[in-house]
Amino acid sequence: MDVNSLRRLLASQSDDTLRMMNTEIVAELRKRQGLKQQRAMIEIQIGEVYEFYAAKKGCNVRVRVKQVNRTTVTATELDARGRETFMSWRVSPSLLKPAEEPLAA
């Protein structure tokens, strides 16, 4: 379905129908996000090195996983040599990607 067809369909619906549709759409998106997090959580290993994009820093951050909780992963940031820093991160497992290049010696 293209965007214009969708807009016409939505414009023809009552407010109550749109609210019901919104509730169902939000529920489906939450379910999908939960499944995505569960799949990502299964692959996360404590002690392994991962990367994620940190919007606060505006760059990728390399971390070593310390703890895996039900919804988040706690990890310690690594410097360029692979040494742990004092910066700790708590992130969604779906944001973590295995580190691609080996750490500098």
Rank of each mutant, 00 (worst) to 15 (best):
A27G: 01
K97I: 11
V73S: 04
T74Y: 00
V73M: 07
L6N: 06
K66F: 10
T17H: 03
T71N: 12
A55K: 14
S88C: 00
A105H: 09
D2I: 12
S14I: 07
N22M: 07
R83V: 05
R70D: 14
E84W: 01
E101D: 06
T74D: 09
F52I: 08
E28C: 04
S5I: 07
V61K: 04
K36A: 14
A99I: 03
I42A: 12
D15F: 05
L96R: 03
C59K: 15
F52D: 06
A104D: 13
E48R: 13
A40G: 11
R83M: 10
T85L: 01
S94K: 08
A27K: 02
A80N: 04
L78G: 05
K66G: 10
R90P: 00
Y53F: 15
L18C: 11
Q45S: 09
V3C: 03
F52Y: 10
W89L: 09
Q33V: 12
K31N: 02
V49A: 05
V68W: 00
E48K: 14
T17Y: 08
P93F: 08
A80W: 05
A11E: 15
K36F: 01
P102Q: 14
S12R: 11
Q45V: 15
F86P: 00
A11H: 08
A105N: 10
A11M: 08
T71L: 06
V73E: 08
N69T: 13
L6R: 08
G47C: 04
R83N: 15
N22L: 14
Q45N: 15
P102N: 13
L78P: 04
T17D: 11
L18F: 07
L29F: 10
R64C: 12
A27P: 00
R62W: 06
M21A: 15
E100N: 09
K31I: 01
P93Q: 07
S12W: 02
T85N: 01
R70Q: 10
Q38D: 14
V3S: 11
W89N: 10
D15P: 01
A40Q: 10
R30F: 01
R39D: 09
G82H: 11
K66M: 14
S12N: 11
F86M: 06
A99H: 13
A99R: 15
R7H: 05
T74P: 00
E101Y: 10
D2M: 06
E24N: 09
M1F: 09
Y50A: 03
W89T: 06
T23P: 02
M41N: 04
A11T: 08
M20S: 09
T74W: 00
Y53R: 08
Q67K: 15
A104G: 02
K66T: 15
E28T: 11
I46S: 07
K56N: 12
R8M: 08
C59W: 02
A75Y: 03
E28M: 10
R7F: 12
F86S: 10
V63Y: 09
P93Y: 10
Q33H: 09
A75R: 04
W89R: 05
V26G: 02
A54G: 12
V49E: 10
L96S: 06
Q13H: 11
Q67T: 15
E48F: 04
R8P: 00
I42N: 06
I44Q: 06
Q33R: 13
A11I: 01
K97G: 03
T85I: 01
E77S: 01
R32E: 01
L35Y: 03
P98G: 07
